[in-house]
Design a protein around this nucleic acid. Structure first.
Lengths: 129, 129
DNA sequence: CTAATTGCAAACGTTTTGCAGCGTT
DNA sequence: AACGCTGCAAAACGTTTGCAATTAG
């Protein structure tokens, strides 16, 4: 894998935390602020490579895939009100892995989605984000 | 909600376990064996309604949504080799819910995906399903 | 009767891909 | 020079929707 200005920018943006669990489209918008010519196809191709090399994580809940710089074990609260994804630190891997072993499966990735309402939305009676 | 021959057939098929975590397309194929004229749109509309009323569950992993008759707490092993989904009985809801409460979130749905290789594929050196 | 449900086909949002040219090594 | 990467545009994919006709209560 060679280096490219596009891929480096994409990685920097996702890692910067300026974007909260961005979709490919979100990343594309942000990338174009710095490099206007970058195509959506390039963003998708690079996000895939970055997931493959473990630099970032892909999070699939409902609708488009979101990307996450956080490589620690955690799960995602998908807020039904504002649509945001919030990281919830919780390591269930050992528990799940043990159960898998008991059933003879080889587990590689554990991916947990939680849907509900985030604390920010619970604390307000206003319109969602 | 009225009854319709199409919806009843769809529910019976998903509940019959003849289909293993079928996608909408799988259900459509199976439905047409019994009622050739049924459209894919009708299958999608009915699967949504059945999820809404809690008769079946939707499972989102990678690619298309899969449907599951199993309403007990469990997680899904998505086999990377044969693509199958296998139920893994394990109730993590209490653990996850407690963590959510500590962070002030209101949790509604907990959805756990595990990717790896299922026992069936581990036990064979042959081509995937 | 009436309103939910249907088949059909077109449209949708997201993602992937073929291609010719460009950039890195 | 070789080959990975790019922008572009078209296509693929899974899903949703508008419509007029049909069907269940």
């Amino acid at each position: 894998m060679r280096t490219s200005r596009q891929r480096q920018l994409i990685l920097d943006l996702v890692r910067s935390r300026a974007l909260n669990h961005p979709t490919a489209q979100d990343v594309h918008d942000a990338v174009r602020d710095h490099m206007p010519g970058v195509s959506l196809g390039t963003v998708y191709r690079n996000l895939h490579q970055l997931v493959e090399t473990g630099e970032i994580m892909a999070v699939q809940s409902e609708g488009p895939v979101h990307y996450d710089w956080n490589r620690e074990p955690h799960l995602h609260l998908h807020c039904r009100r504002c649509g945001s994804l919030v990281d919830v630190p919780l390591d269930l891997e050992a528990t799940v892995r043990e159960q898998g072993r008991a059933l003879g499966h080889a587990l590689e990735e554990i991916d947990i989605h939680v849907r509900g309402t985030c604390s920010r939305c619970l604390g307000s009676t206003n319109k969602p984000q």
